[in-house]
Structure formats: structure tokens, C-alpha cells
Nucleic acid binder design. Structure first.
Lengths: 338, 338
DNA sequence: CGCATCTTTTGAAACGTTTCGAAATCGCCC
DNA sequence: GGGCGATTTCGAAACGTTTCAAAAGATGCG
């Protein structure tokens, strides 16, 4: 493998070196039909000799870039790393390359900028974008959305069983004798009722289950602000209320970490039940030992990537993958003292 | 903002709508010199009406894509998220967009694929690639390398004070009465002596300090295999040795988490001193409470991005940023029992 | 008012691929 | 050996921008 230096080598250089036309080289590198063994060999030799690599830009302009985009709202959220890992695995071995686009500010911009010709398809985790807008995006470029509970026609979805998962948590806590159960979730924007985001569904389910159990008046909801660390502050708030909860259901493991931190910092570790969601690697750590719902993040990421690849193969009817949710009981969900 | 549908709208459409030439539109969208207010207004109106967005592919082919690439070996490593976060912040507000490229397998491929016209510049965290190869890459496209202790001429570097950080840890442990101090680090490939990777330097510094202290025969080195979870296995090995260490210096916080896990799982939490590196958010968690070295990961990411932007502005002489390392003492570094 | 000097606008040529129809070559059979 | 399909190769036209030199239009000055 020779190392390219100076001005980059183009398909014309290869064609010239091999003594064939540009079209011929193009066919060889794409494994297209209709190229004789002799020609293939000469072209490949020239490619090797010159260290030629096709320009993604030129390819993208003409057709496809062989890049898949994964848009992520929060790079540091533990759940996201599961998704990324899964998607990466699924894409490995295909001619496609995965690129991640961290959203900064409004997700629309990030998605647009991906759609602007950088990638051939998009996996997005964007609870806040408008479904109609997404349908439109799906018309321009293949799209798979993660964590959407609606039933779109123009793109695919990968979604967890947020109802089942939340119900499992609640049942578990009831079994442990808890009644005064609070829910600590994400900011308002991400949990708006009817919006169909995972956290909206979890919140709604929490409400429903509490009400079904005749505990409607014990419903307590707290939110963390956008900065991750503020889960601690929200927990402090909860615990300072006149009738503090005996159990806190956190929207996901990262929030639960904040809850555990606050409880531990006030010397009450083990006195209040805490549950998370996503079963991140932290939850399994002996020092954290967090009861959590496993919704197979890696599998979700992998499925999303696979579905996107299918769309690139030509599938047009929408598909949906629904991951199962299973409760992982660990030490953090302590029995109610009452 | 109207929503694009069907075939995408090109610069020609805008030109036609506005009744000007393509070149004129191009100038407007690039804020180039020599466009009258009247024309600017008409063009901008047309852009708005049509919902035009320039094609990245076409731009890239012609000059720049306004994308910066950040290559990351392990998306789930906590330290990486600091870097990403920092780089994201630094790029925000510039006309550039950050894209992340998770390396799968050999980093060469990922870097090449970034250089193939996708991005205008590259930030890389690739301990394993050959310096000469990198110099060559740097000749084709601006490059900033994170965690390189060499002094390249063709690209910039951002590096931590691995010697200082490691010395601070060792001094701290000596002060606590430890002598039998083990080092648990990354696999062989990443710590080869003289390779100049952060972990190679930390390992070397550990060796040096131990030797200086006359404890050369107490040097104990363990490695985790590539799977993150295997830090636990490596710890178990260490603790099963005839003369087990009283303190374990982990290569970074993620490894330290495994060490803590194993120690806790065997019911010996608090009996063995543990230190990490990177001062990730976990280290500060009350339940983890890990002594660690803060090397300002976010700042490193931000500096890397800034330096890359400078290069895109035209700077050519190499620069280097060296982050400071400060020890964060926490509960995990317990006093030696002996 | 004519000419020189600026400024604004334009046309056309890149950039490096893919694609499509046409040209060339080959093998085979009558 | 001429004719005919099938195969292999090629030339040229896209794709959507930017750029550069040149055209056109203002402006100022003598």
C-alpha cells in the first residue's frame, strides 16, 4: 500500500496508468457487471500502485456517499452509547460507514445538515421534532427513528416497551410495600403528554398505574433541568417535601445516578428505593447495584441500522421494531420501611 | 420556512427564481465580497421561499464541506465523551459542523474514510497509528492528534501531563503508606514502551517512580483485555497473587470502575486503595468516590477543535497544547493498613 | 460629455465520480 | 469469410457547487 502524497490521485490517474477509460475504473471499484478479468487485474494493480481512494464528495454528488448518519441528542448519555455500539456492529461488514452527528441546539439543524448530502440514510433520536416534518424528511432520504411511539408511514421506527417496562417497575415497588412513589423525569419539553416520546410514555404509565392502584393522590412528579447534574437538586427537592417518597422511579439510569448520589450524600443510602431505566453498565456495578429495566439498547441500535440498510436496498413500506423490556432487580430497590 | 419536497432544490432554482446568475447566489450564501444590497435581498427571499439548502457533496467536491471529523476509538469510554463534549462546544457558533467517526477495527480505515473528502479537517485519538503515516495524512488535510507525546511537524497535538499526573498519584499513595502498588493498564498494544501513548507514558512513569523509591521489586503490572469488563478479571488475578498489592493504580477511570467492582464483589470494599485517571463524572459520585487525575478532557477537546479551526484559517506551523493534570483526592485512596 | 476607474454581475470551466447509449471487439455458425 | 449476438470498452453528459476572468453598469473627473 503506497502512501498518497501531494495532490490526491483521481480516477483519471488510475485510468491513465491502467490504460483504460474512467468508466472502466469506475466499474471495477464498484464491482459492476461487465468487466473482463484482464481489465480488472490491470485496474486493481493501478489502484494499488497509486494508492487511489475514491472521493466521497464526488460519489455523493453523483449518487451515494456510503455513509450512514446517526444523530444523537446527548453524546454523554449512557443509553446513547449502547445505541451507537449496536449500530456500529450492524454496519460493520457492509460497504457503509457510520458517522455520528451530535445535535447542538435544535435537532432540525443537525438532521438537515445530515440530509444535505452527507449521508445516504439517517438514524435519529429526536424526541422533539415534528412528525410531519419527519415524514417530509423521509421522503427525501431514508430515515429510521428511535424512540417514537407513533405509526409513521414515511420512515421506520425502533421503540422500546416503555409501558411494559414502567409497569414492571411499579409492580415491583408495590410488591416491596411502597405506596409513596415519586417519578423523577426529564424536562417538560421531552415529556409532553401525547408527544409519544419514551419519557412521556413512562410518565403517563406511572400516572396510570398509580391511579389504578388508588394512589392518585400520592402521585409526585419531579423533573431535572437540562444539565445532567441537576437530578441531584431535583431529588433534594423531593426529599424535602412534607410527605417525601419512599421510592423514586427515575426516568433512566443517568437520572437514577443523580438520585443515588443525593441520597448517599445525605447519608440515607439504602433507605429509599431507587429504580432506573436502560440497564446501563453502571447499574450492574456492585457499588451502584441499581434496579433497572433492560430494553436492549444495543439491539435497538443494531436493528435501526439494519432497517436503514434494508431501506437502502429498496424497501419502502414502513417497518417498526419493538424491543422487549425486562426488569433487572438489584439492590437499590429496597423494601419499604413503613 | 417552507419544507422541501420531492426533488431537491438547487442553486440554479434559486438563481432562476431570483432572476440572477448562479454565481450571484453562490456569493450571497457565502457572504462573499461584491454583492449589492438589492441583489442580496432578492436572493435571500428566493432562498427562503424555496427552502434551499446547499449540497454538501457539491461543496466538498469544489472546496470545503464545512465538516470537521472527530475519530474516536471507543465511543463508550467516558473520557471520550468529555472530548466530544468539549469539541462540540468549541465548534458551536462557527460555520463548521462536527461529525464523529467511531473507529471499527483498524483506525487507518476510519481516518482514511474521513480524509476521503467527507471533512475539511480531522481530530483523531489514535494511539496506534504510525507517526510517519500521520505526517502524510497531515499533508493532505489538517490534523490534530489527541494524546500524542511526540513532536510532529505536520499536525498539531493536544496532550495531557501524563507524567505529572501519574507522579501525583504515586506520591499520594506513598504518603498513605503504600509500597505494594500495582498498575492495571490497557492491553499491550496501546502501552508499548516508547510509543508515546498516554498509557505507555503512565506505565513508564509508574515504573520509574517505583524504581526511584527503591521499590523496583514490588512492581506489579496487570492488563485488562480489550473488553471493558475484563478489568475485573485482571483485578481478581492481581488480588490472588501471593503478595497482593495494597493499592491499585488504574490506567483510567473506566478500568478503576472494574477494579472497584471486583473489590466490592469480594467484600473488601475500602480495604485496597484504588485510583483512576481522567476524573470522569463517575469518580465524583458519592458511591464511587474515586481518587482520580483531572486532565480537563473537555478543555482538551475544545482546544483540539480550536487548533483545527486555526489550521483551516491558514496556520501551518505545528502547535501543541498541554493540559495540566491535578490530582483529585477522594475516598477510594485509603490509607495502607500495614 | 468622454474616458478611466470602480463596483456589480455573469458565463463557463472546473471538481471527481457514475451512468447511459454507442462503439468496438469477440466468438460462433452457416 | 461474412453476418450476428453477446460481451467488453469507451466517450460524454450529468450531479451542484465555486471560482476566475471578462462583461456590463456605475461613478467620478477633467
Amino acid at each position: 500500500m503506497s502512501i498518497t502524497k501531494g495532490r490526491s490521485v483521481t480516477i483519471s490517474d488510475v485510468a491513465q496508468t491502467a490504460g483504460v477509460s474512467r468508466a472502466a475504473v469506475s466499474k471495477v471499484i464498484r464491482n459492476a457487471y461487465g468487466v473482463s478479468p484482464a481489465m480488472r487485474e490491470r485496474v486493481e494493480a493501478a489502484i494499488g500502485e497509486l494508492g487511489y481512494r475514491p472521493s466521497v464528495a464526488a460519489r455523493a454528488l453523483r449518487g451515494s456517499s456510503y455513509r450512514l448518519g446517526l444523530e444523537i441528542p446527548h453524546v454523554s448519555a449512557r443509553f446513547m452509547t449502547q445505541i451507537m455500539e449496536g449500530a456500529k456492529q450492524a454496519v460493520a461488514g457492509t460497504p457503509y460507514q457510520l458517522v455520528l452527528a451530535p445535535a447542538h441546539g435544535p435537532e432540525y439543524d443537525t438532521l438537515e445538515s445530515l440530509a444535505d448530502g452527507l449521508v445516504d440514510g439517517i438514524i435519529a433520536i429526536s424526541p422533539l421534532v415534528d412528525p410531519a416534518w419527519l415524514e417530509d424528511l423521509g421522503r427525501r432520504i431514508p430515515v429510521v427513528m428511535l424512540g417514537r411511539h407513533d405509526h409513521p408511514t414515511g420512515y421506520d421506527t425502533v421503540v422500546g416497551d416503555d409501558i411494559g417496562g414502567t409497569r414492571a417497575i411499579m409492580t415491583h415497588l408495590f410488591d416491596l410495600g411502597h405506596r409513596r412513589i415519586a417519578h423523577l423525569t426529564e424536562p417538560e419539553a421531552v415529556t409532553r403528554p401525547g408527544s409519544g416520546t419514551p419519557h412521556a410514555v413512562r410518565l403517563e404509565t406511572y400516572r396510570t398505574v398509580m391511579t389504578e392502584a388508588g394512589l392518585a393522590d400520592l402521585i409526585q412528579i419531579a423533573r431535572r433541568e437540562d444539565v445532567p447534574d441537576l437530578a441531584r437538586a431535583a431529588t433534594a427537592d423531593l426529599l424535602a417535601r412534607p410527605e417525601p417518597p419512599t421510592a423514586i422511579v427515575a426516568g433512566h439510569d443517568d437520572i437514577a445516578m443523580g438520585v443515588l448520589a443525593e441520597i448517599a450524600a445525605t447519608g440515607r443510602h439504602g433507605e429509599i428505593a431507587v429504580t432506573g431505566y436502560d440497564n446501563t453498565d453502571l447499574a450492574a456495578h456492585p457499588l451502584i447495584d441499581l434496579t433497572s429495566v433492560d430494553q436492549q439498547g444495543m439491539e435497538m441500535g443494531a436493528q435501526a441500522a439494519t432497517m436503514l440498510l434494508e431501506r437502502l436496498q429498496g424497501r419502502t413500506e414502513p417497518r417498526r421494531y419493538r424491543a422487549t423490556a425486562t426488569l433487572q432487580v438489584r439492590g437499590s430497590s429496597v423494601r419499604s420501611a413503613g
